[in-house]
Every structure is written in C-alpha cells, then in structure tokens.
Amino acid sequence: MDVVRTAIGLMSGTSMDGIDVALIRTDGRGFIERGPFLGMPYEADFRRRLKRALELARPLRDRTERPAELREIELELTLRHATAVRAFLERFGLAANGVDVLGFHGQTVLHRSDEGLTVQIGDGRELARRTGIPVVYDMRANDMVHGGQGAPLVPAYHAALAGKFQQAGEAVCFVNIGGISNLTYIGADGRIAAFDSGPGNTLIDQWIEMQTGRTYDPGGEIGGRGRIVPALAERYLDSPFFRGNVRRSLDRGDFAPLRPDEASLEDGARTLAHVAAASIVKSAGFLPERPSAYIVCGGGRLNGTLMAELSAMAGGSSVLSAEAAGFDGDAMEAEAWAYLAVRSLDGLPLTFPGTTGVAAPVSGGVLATP
C-alpha cells in the first residue's frame, strides 16, 4: 500500500514577490488531499536583495558556487522560509512533528538550460535544522544532469490533478502564469507534454515598477486603460523562441524589459499583457492538439486584461481560472513542490521526456534531515 504523507511546499517564484506555503496529504501518486495555504510577501528591501542575487549569479559556471554576498542573500532567504514555515504552523494549529517533509524550491537566480546550468539559492540543510522537519530541495539539477531542461517541474502535479476535472475524450491544458509562463497538456489518453511558453508577469511587473514604483498592475487595471503598440508587441513575438520545434526552458532575463520612453504607462502595460497572452497561444501551437480548456493558475490569472486577451485568442477553447475549475490558483505551485517532495522520497520520477526533454523519466532532489 502506498504511504500517504503530510507535506508542505514552499515556493518563491520568478516574480520574487514572496513565499507561498501550502500543505497537502498525498501518496505522491493519485491521492491528493489539499490543505491550507499562506502567502508571505517579501518586504521591498529584500526584493531588492534578490534582484542583486540575479546580478551576482550571472558569471557563475557551477551551480554550487556561492560568492560571499550571494551566500549572505541565500542565508537571508533561508531564514525567511524558516519563519514562513513557523508562521504557517502557528496560523493553522499544526505541529512540526506532524509534517513529514518540506518541499523547498528556493529562488532561481540563474537558469541556462542550453548549458545544463541551473542555480537555486536556498540552504536545505539549514532549513531542516531550523524547522526540525526533513527537507527535499534542489529538485531541478538531476534532470539537467540527465539531459533535461530542468523545467517545468509542476506538470507531474498538474497531471495528477487533471483527473478531477478532465472530461472523457478531452485534452486540457494547465497554464501557469508566473514570472515566466508554462503549459502542461494532458491528453485524453493521459499523455503529458509541457514546456515554458514565454514571458508571463515579469515584463509587466518590470514595466509597472519602472514607471510607478509599484510592483505589479493590480487586476490589470492600468493595462485595461491602454492600447496595444503593435511594433513593440511584434518585437517580442518575433523572438526565435516561438519558432522551430524545439522547446526550451526560459530564464527571466531572456526577454528584455521595455525602455522607459517606449510607451505610455497604460499602453506599455496593455502591450505586455497582450504579449503574455499571445505567447501562450503561440506556444500552444506546439501541443499535440488543441485543448478543450485552458486552466489558468499563478498570479497572471488575476490580471483581467491578460485573461481577456487570452480568452479572445483561445480559438474556441474555454479559458478558466483555477478557482473556476475547483482548484486554488495561488496555492498550486507550492502544492506541487510538496507533491514532488513526496515523490522524491519514494524515488518516483519528477520529470519526463514530454516535460523537460530528459531522455527517460528521472527522479531528483536532495534530502536534508534535521
């Protein structure tokens, strides 16, 4: 009989806005019982520190390298995750000894899939020591050792969830719109295909912060007042990333932000929301077939302008928020990291040829005990 474990997932994504904490009970296979969720935003000073980490990581050639300042930021990040775990346990009346494992994503500061290099900062051993809970971390690296792109990893969880929504004979596609967007296709026959689809929130957030000092466009309201600037949109959508049959994983630096004088605040936000939606549809052209529904999770689902653009381009496929499909779009990535941690403990595959391009299904992750 498969063992059901209680797992907490910790996710700090490319938007660098905070830590998502979610609990599930799962056997790492088909049984999933979703529990509570908590979002812990970063303060502005620490967000600036994380952006500094991106600069410090740029010259790295080994994923274990930690120049002194980067190591300091890594420790700060780890301590914040420990604080988030303690706050989560206290908020929901849970005990650390009632949690079997933490799935710790850390913060991706460098991802060069073509070079087989990915760097996630976050000290799993220190997190285990400070929380008293075993930690599975560094879950991307083994995939890249075996020839994969190291991303996306969430598809294994999407596939497990699909059975709760999918109608017989229909394909569905989960769309995660974080800093970078990615797609997970689950065919009627259970076939999985997944890949990064293009820029998600990152370009919009960078534009809004550059122009206003705010960190995002709440609800897509700013973009909703603007117009698409075709020349700017095409500059992104003509990228070689959208041509050819080889899908690759993306780093947040693969698409350069707009320059400050290239558009008005509103037109820039609208154009970049259009780019995010069009990127999804362009990349969906590489799926085995058009899905009956797109289920949208991640922060981008809250951008009404982006969602309206996606609905208009979806070509007859329905576009649903995760909540409309019965899920929690805020919690899903953190839940996925909890699910993957349990799979890692059991030596089950985290990635597959159809998700990262790895030659054969492969497990991964490093286990740290208190």
Rank of each mutant, 00 (worst) to 15 (best):
I192A: 04
F174V: 04
L10D: 01
R129K: 15
A359S: 13
S311D: 10
L10S: 03
V136T: 06
R125L: 15
R252T: 12
S264H: 07
H158A: 04
G357Y: 04
A95K: 15
R270Q: 09
L127V: 15
A171F: 04
A312N: 13
R25L: 08
G150D: 06
V358T: 12
S318E: 14
A336S: 14
G18A: 12
L350H: 05
L75G: 05
I208T: 02
F242C: 01
P349R: 02
S283V: 12
T14W: 06
H111M: 10
E323W: 10
S318I: 14
E65R: 06
V246Q: 11
T14A: 11
R47A: 13
R61P: 09
R247D: 01
S264L: 09
A44Y: 13
G178A: 06
A84L: 07
E335R: 00
L110Y: 08
L110V: 09
M307F: 08
I177E: 01
V275Y: 07
Y137S: 14
D328S: 10
M1C: 06
K164P: 00
L54S: 02
L302A: 12
G18P: 03
L89M: 08
L110S: 11
N182L: 04
G253S: 14
A336H: 03
S264G: 15
G220K: 00
T184H: 00
V99T: 06
L54K: 07
G132K: 05
D196K: 04
N97Y: 13
E335I: 02
L79T: 10
A128V: 10
Q206E: 14
G163V: 08
L237Y: 12
A151W: 07
E323Y: 05
S181I: 11
L60Q: 05
N245E: 15
